[in-house]
């Protein structure tokens, strides 16, 4: 379970998030929606205690205070961030990264035979050409390829808490379908908690039950269920956020 209480996040002197509170239970899918510039991506990185942020308040994952941990330790706890624009790293292959990450997580060398076998299986599941395993991380890939490439790491590292930061951004209909189906498949297999940050309803069609919160001015102004996301899609944020009451379902 992830519990964020009284969170304030600043960059230099600018307050991005203020009095932000949210609880996401084990296995829960929680959707965070909001207009541009309200701090949605900030919360994604703040959960990982991003070094650029000044963080006050509490972020606890299964009782562990994340604000006191470094980024790597948070990753090792089983949290996974899939960013809006995944970084390109020429010179490091997916296989190198995943192998090293698994080795550090398990604190022992990994069995190469099993590793390769699982890589092949994952490529089949997410419909990713096997050649991607030995390609440099997200380098020279299209937007859709990058998202699918990130799914390779996700399936291999088996996180228990997934943060999807506008994963639907830059995806065409076919790519969105592949990514959505793959995420749904992972959810069915592992039942992780998922925090989905998005502007749109489209990616949500791949999930059955989820909670929705609206972020405005650095804190949550309204919460509800999937109906709220549909309302947002239909009428926009202004109609739903201005004068909206918290926890109004």
């Amino acid at each position: 379970m992830l519990e964020i209480k009284d969170l304030t996040v600043k960059v230099d002197d600018k307050i991005i998030l203020n009095n932000f509170n949210i609880t996401i239970n084990d296995g829960e899918i929680h959707v965070l929606m909001g207009p541009n510039g309200t701090g949605k991506s900030t919360i994604c990185k703040a959960i990982f205690n991003h070094p650029d942020y000044i963080i006050e308040g509490s972020i606890k994952y299964n009782g562990t205070e994340l604000t006191k941990l470094d980024v790597a330790s948070i990753g090792k706890l089983g949290l996974f961030l899939l960013a809006q624009n995944p970084v390109e790293i020429p010179g490091i292959t997916n296989a190198e990264l995943i192998r090293s990450a698994l080795s550090e997580k398990e604190n022992k060398p990994i069995d190469i035979f099993k590793f390769n076998k699982k890589l092949n299986e994952v490529c089949e599941i997410i419909n990713l050409p096997k050649s991607f395993v030995h390609r440099d991380i997200n380098f020279n890939m299209s937007g859709g390829e990058k998202k699918k490439n990130e799914l390779l790491s996700l399936f291999m590292l088996e996180p228990k808490f997934i943060i999807l930061d506008e994963i639907d951004s830059g995806l065409d209909i076919d790519a969105l379908k592949e990514v959505g189906n793959a995420l749904n498949k992972y959810y069915e297999m592992e039942h992780p908690s998922i925090l989905i940050v998005t502007h749109h309803q489209a990616i949500l069609e791949y999930f059955k039950d989820y909670q929705v919160s609206i972020l405005q001015d650095g804190h949550i102004t309204k919460s509800g269920t999937s109906d709220l996301a549909k309302e947002i899609e239909k009428h926009g944020f202004k109609a739903n956020v201005i004068n909206g009451s918290k926890n109004d379902e």
């Binding site: 070094p51 790597a72 990753g75 996974f80 970084v87 090293s100 990450a101 550090e104 991380i137």
Partner: peptide
């Protein structure tokens, strides 16, 4: 720093 954050978020030590 973005590359460093990315790799560390996957669980790699500094």
């Amino acid at each position: 720093t973005q590359e460093l954050f990315y790799l560390k978020s996957k669980g790699l030590s500094e």
